[in-house]
Simulated assay, not measured.
Amino acid sequence: MNAQRLRYKNKLPELKNSLNLLDALEEKKGKEESMETNFLLSDQVYSTATIAPTDKVCLWLGANVMLEYSLAEARDLLQRNIGSAEKGIVELTSELDFVKDQLTTTEVNIARVYNHGVQRRKLQAGSAS
C-alpha cells in the first residue's frame, strides 16, 4: 500500500504538469500562435520543437500506448486521473493509518499475554517452593 501511494504521489505532479501544458496549448490556439517548447527525449536529453495551433493532443496512457484526444477530451481525462490519484492517496493514507493502529494493538496484546505468562510462572514457582 505504501508503494501504491508513492506511485500516486509521483504521478500527480506529472498529471498536473500535463494539464498546465494543455492550458497553454488552448491559450495559444485561441490567439492562433505557435508555441515553442522542449521535449524530453530521454533522461537529461531535450529537443526543441515548435507546435502549431491544434485541436488535438496525444497522451501516453501507459504500457507503451498513446492515444489522440481533442483538447476537451484530454482535459476531462486528465482531470479524472488527477481526481482518482488524489482520492487514492487519501484512501491509502487512511488504510495505512488503520493498519498502523491494528499493529500497535496487536503488539500491546502480545506484551500483555507475555506478561500474564510471566506472572503465572512466578505464581507456580512460588507455590511449588
Rank of each mutant, 00 (worst) to 15 (best):
L92N: 03
A111E: 13
E95S: 09
Y114D: 13
V118W: 03
S47F: 09
D43C: 06
A85W: 00
V90S: 12
Q119H: 09
A85V: 03
N81T: 08
N64A: 13
Q79K: 12
E32R: 10
T93Y: 01
L78S: 00
L96Q: 11
A24M: 14
V45A: 12
L41I: 11
A24Y: 09
N38V: 05
S18A: 15
K56P: 07
R75N: 07
S18D: 12
D101M: 10
L67Y: 07
I110S: 06
T37E: 10
T48S: 15
A72L: 08
D43R: 08
W60H: 07
M66H: 09
L67N: 14
F98L: 14
A125Q: 14
V57S: 01
A49H: 10
T48Q: 15
A74R: 00
R120W: 03
K100Q: 13
K31S: 05
N17G: 15
E36P: 01
Y114S: 14
N115Q: 15
D55S: 13
K31N: 04
N17H: 08
M66T: 11
A74D: 00
E32C: 08
Y114P: 04
V118N: 06
E86I: 02
T93C: 06
E26D: 10
D23I: 02
L103T: 14
N38I: 04
T93N: 14
Q44M: 10
L96K: 02
K28P: 01
A128E: 14
S84Y: 13
E95V: 03
L19A: 11
E27M: 07
E36F: 01
D23F: 03
K100G: 10
T54K: 00
L25I: 15
L40W: 03
G83V: 02
G126Y: 07
L71R: 00
N115K: 12
E68G: 08
G83S: 11
T93R: 02
T106W: 03
D55V: 05
R112S: 14
L71K: 00
N109I: 08
L71Q: 03
L92H: 01
V113F: 07
E107H: 04
K100S: 15
L41S: 06
S18H: 07
K100D: 13
T93L: 02
A111Q: 11
